[in-house]
């Protein structure tokens, strides 16, 4: 692909993300779209570490680290201050992990978007508490092993559909994106930047360490999540208008599952059940988008 317009770089080398870290790819691509007039709020997540220890920063924009559950609130404050200073040009972005979004930060997020604060909330989703050592979150998918869903006690509950929850807030823009689809991701970030009010981007960001995959597989696995309909690429405007951005060919979910150590324990029967769940979710999405399968 050619993304010549995005030569600009706002993330530095030398950050301490794991080899092949999807969250760093997400950040790098996202920032290429955002540009220098961006202030970033970083609630506790992998990126709290990746961004570097004092006195270092891996980011070339202003960043404020903040407590785990405050992504929405802190951004509201930054936005309010900028508005008071007459700075409407600078975008405020909250960059949070799935734990900080789906779980502990959910109230703050919901509060901020209910107020339709003018900011972009990005959840980079690696489907567990990776920074603390792979504990399950409400984003952890059905079937996954984590250190708190160990052995035969793997997670037998669905992943929370955070996108639909945000859609229900009727905010101007909600979209999913994926590190394996850089052009789509960059386009959505730019679109979010151009819209006033609350925007939510859900970026699928693979985690080689936590998913038990080789580092060089992280983009491929992320791509397969889209190809298998596990993580569809779509966007919703004003809580009503659904657009599905990518209609994949019918790959089987087992292709995705069998490559990852976190799903190693699943039997064919389990995988069949997961396929049914994925098909059902995809069908629901198609209905919402007013499309046929």
């Amino acid at each position: 692909m050619q993304i010549d317009a995005y030569d600009r770089e706002y993330m530095c080398s030398g950050h301490v993300g794991c080899a092949g870290c999807g969250a760093t790819i997400a950040m790098r691509l996202f920032m290429k779209a955002m540009g220098e007039k961006t202030i970033m709020v970083l609630p506790a997540c992998c990126w709290s570490v990746i961004a570097g220890p004092y006195p270092q920063s891996a980011m070339k924009i202003p960043v404020i680290h903040t407590a785990f559950e405050t992504g929405g609130a802190t951004a509201s404050g930054v936005r309010a201050a900028l508005d008071m200073k007459g700075d409407t040009e600078t975008s405020v972005v909250t960059w949070a992990g799935d734990g900080g979004t789906f779980d502990i930060g959910f109230q703050s997020l919901s509060g901020a978007v209910e107020r339709n604060e003018d900011f972009i909330y990005v959840c980079y989703d690696n489907e567990a508490y990776m920074n603390t050592g792979i504990q399950r979150s409400s984003s952890t998918p059905y079937g996954a092993w984590t250190t708190t869903t160990p052995g035969q006690d793997w997670k037998r509950l669905r992943k929370k559909n955070i996108v639909e929850v945000l859609v229900a807030h009727r905010i101007p823009y909600v979209a999913t994106a994926n590190i394996a689809f850089p052009e789509d991701l960059i386009r959505k970030a730019q679109k979010a930047k151009s819209i006033k009010g609350s925007k939510f981007l859900h970026i699928f960001a693979s985690c080689p360490t936590g998913w038990r995959i080789p580092s060089e597989m992280s983009v491929k696995i992320a791509r397969m999540a889209v190809q298998t309909n596990i993580f569809p690429l779509y966007e919703v405007e004003d809580g009503i208008h659904y657009t599905i951005n990518h209609k994949p060919k019918e790959y089987l979910v087992r292709e995705y599952f069998k490559l990852q150590g976190r799903f190693r324990h699943l039997t064919d029967k389990d995988l069949d059940q997961i396929q049914t769940m994925v098909d059902e979710d995809w069908g629901l999405l198609l209905k919402k988008a007013g499309e046929r399968s």
Binding site: C12, S13, G14, H15, V16, A19, A51, G52, Y54, P55, Q56, S57, A58, K60, H65
Partner: peptide
Amino acid sequence: MPRTHETTEGNKTGSWR
């Protein structure tokens, strides 16, 4: 106070390779 004044480029992460 906790306020940065360098980039992470001081970390030569190539040593991980």
